[in-house]
Design a protein around this nucleic acid. Sequence first.
RNA 1: GCCGGUGUAGCUCAAUGGCUAGAGCACUUGACUGUGGAUCAAGGGGUUAUGGGUUCAAGUCCCGUCGCCGGUACCA
Length: 469
Amino acid sequence: MGIVEPKILRGFRDLLPTDMIALEKIISVIKDVCESYGFIPTSTPAIEYKNILLAYGEETSKEVYFFEEPDGNMVGLRYDLTVPLSRVIAQYKNLPKPFKRYQVSTVWRYDKPNPGRFREFIQFDIDAVGTSSISADSEIILAIYDCLERLGPSFIIRLNNRKILNSLIVFAGIEPNMARSVFRVIDKLEKQGIEVVKQELGPGRVDISGDKIKGLGLNEVQIKKIEEFLSLPKNTCSEAIDSLKELFKSVKGAEEGIDEIKEIHDHLDCLSIPDGKIIIDFSIARGLDYYTGPVFEVVLTDAKEYGSVVGGGRFDELIGYFTGENTPATGASVGIDRLLEALKKLKLVKTKPSTADVIITIMVKDKLGEYQKIAKKIRDAGIKTELYVGEKTSIKEQLKYADKQDIPVAVIVGEDEFTRNEASIKDLRVIKKQKIEIGEREAYLKERIGQKKVPMGNLVEEIKLMLKK
RNA sequence: GCCGGUGUAGCUCAAUGGCUAGAGCACUUGACUGUGGAUCAAGGGGUUAUGGGUUCAAGUCCCGUCGCCGGUACCA
């Protein structure tokens, strides 16, 4: 008989318990924060009609998984959570506005896989729809700020405004249809440096591997003006705002974007958020075409190689493709997979193979019912408790299993304990924590390291005490 | 997509074109039938990613494919 070779698609991956436990933990922290801000959960299908997925234009299509249903409908896997959100807003017209929702779901893109970047990945989106108020943008940024504070990594939130970049196009005298390309180039500033940016704005350059990168062909005056913009003093947010105001004083309509970013800054200032954690960076544009106002992204300062782990901004024109009317919206998207990889590397998330805190070992096979009673008692007290169900029933095997699963406490009840109405509880962490100097195996066994006999009536209390250590 | 590197046991890696492809860790078993550590002993594990070619002889050299890593491009 042929054996089927076990393999998975390129860019896809399995999440084994250790990763999955860490992932769930991260998600639950973010959910808690969202709900503490009054964002409410939504869910939409993984599959949408093709024309829905293509609502913003055909150019998106090459990275989307499309397929035909047996009855001929053309459908596809969602590639983000914003398109389904727009559909939902258009479809359920009586949703309360502002509609503040969060959604954590899998999305699919046929991209080139990278470390921390997969073809199937999880997005955590937070959005506020139906309000132009900048306070919505501030709330989302604050929620993201709180999430990161609770998760623990050091980070920087970079803020900008698409309107400011649009003013730059006017300021530098660039054709409006070049705007998008210019934004794409200046977005590279942080990673590549000013010289590369200037080359790409102008004649182009040749990269390390010998590839030619075409330049945008801007003239020297235009490049000079962009450089002036990018090198504005911005040690503090107020300094950045003031210097930009000065630079753009003759640009018509430039106040709007500057005022918006100032408003966000004022909100954050009231909460005494340290100036270095949320900064203004005029180079960030975000890859997406659809942003219309404030934009921001987050990098982890000790794990920069994962790129931005959160990105977001205002997209006032997007939902209109479905509603036919102007529907302002702003949001953020957390790259959960990148965050997981980064937090693992920074050792800020527990990587454990099991969620159980207690294992009940089986010593007397025909008293299974008794063991189940013990397990129930501990579970009823809110402690995660596993009853050993393996076939190898020697105590040695059971403890080895518990050790491998990193379960901290074992309950051992044999004939002795049953007759005395007692239980032995054993702290399995003790051996790992300190090297115990016992040479002889016999002495080691006698020592019963980390073990304690307690009356059955006190079992739950004693376990709680042991777990607290 | 393009450029470069790389692929040997579960993991980390050895092996001048030449004898039966090795080691450490991990794993299994026993010393030890109510105790996970340490120690000792034994054991299992490989189509050298894959398909072709050169050669008396290929893990080793050449070509294709696939995977992985790095860079670059793209990213609604």
